[in-house]
Nucleic acid binder design. Structure first.
Lengths: 162, 162
DNA sequence: CTAATCTGGTTTCTTTAAGCAACCTTATTC
DNA sequence: GAATAAGGTTGCTTAAAGAAACCAGATTAG
């Protein structure tokens, strides 16, 4: 596809997408969160081509989203485990799942019911919140002037070409 | 790239990624949240190829993430605006941004400081929360048995091949 | 000890999509 | 009525995704 590289982009979303923004990476991370750790298991569960899986796993390891550990049992067995950086993708994956469930529900499938292990209660919708925990929409936020980056004002100030 | 289609996937993350999981779509949505609405503005801000931008915009409109409105000024001018479904990607975009800022900070750029328009206070980290608003990690959640889909148990139960 | 098998890949080939640049159409401005 | 702008479309090139075959080290079966 002749992808554009975002490594040096001043936008942290672009940099994030550079690491996990392709079709497979987030699905690999998702399955890793579900407990998958082995090459063959990823391959079978995802139905991904082996060479692509190789590439994605290597890249995720490079980017320290996963770590590759030699599982001592015998010798040449490996496991891919989430790092803290990888586990930190949890809200993103869950937010994506909730969005998918809300806007593209599968007719035959109940939306994922993820529950708190302690209380057994269903988790909340992932949302952007103010300091007090109240939900914020895109209209409710702004970027203070002098913000050092690619962001202009949120939901405001279309860069008029003139 | 011969991408695999996920439309019919039983996984809602896969279905979500099918709509906004490519390199550009989420960046288009991000810029739309920043206020960009015009073809040329997207093109210049993103540095995306025009044909790809066309394709992405059309797809996002098809998927009802954006709507294309004829802006009456003169006649053949259009604006691409977020729908509710599109605005609903806000937590995902913000979570991605926070993740990028945390794990791949730009040396010369301060992390995005997004603030509540009312109070002026910085927003929270986007997180998965239990019913009471307490943060949950991937280890703190589970999927009740009988969940109707692709999910096995979160952070548990590696499908032993046997 | 050799053959079959499992795991974790690598290689080759084909298909498809991304990137680039040129072009095109409708309107507007000069 | 020429130049410019918006919003595309077309064609070509390049690079990545997919499929499938092959491969090497370790394990188990006989």
């Amino acid at each position: 596809m002749a992808r554009k590289r975002f490594d040096d982009s001043s936008c942290s979303v672009a940099r994030a997408l550079n690491e996990v923004g392709d079709w497979w990476s987030l699905l690999v991370v998702l399955h890793a969160m579900y407990g998958t750790r082995r090459f063959v298991d990823f391959q079978q569960e995802l139905g991904i081509a082996r060479n692509i899986l190789c590439d994605r796993l290597a890249r995720l390891v490079d980017n320290q989203v996963l770590k590759k550990v030699e599982v001592g049992e015998h010798g040449s067995r490996f496991e891919y485990r989430l790092t803290e950086k990888g586990r930190d993708l949890f809200p993103i994956v869950i937010a994506l799942r909730q969005w998918g469930d809300k806007w593209n529900p599968a007719p035959d499938q109940a939306p994922l019911d993820l529950r708190d292990r302690e209380t057994g209660q269903t988790i909340r919708q992932v949302e952007v919140q103010d300091a007090d925990g109240n939900p914020l929409s895109v209209r409710d936020v702004f970027v203070p002037e002098g913000d050092g980056g690619s962001a202009r004002k949120a939901s405001d100030s279309k860069k008029k070409t003139g």
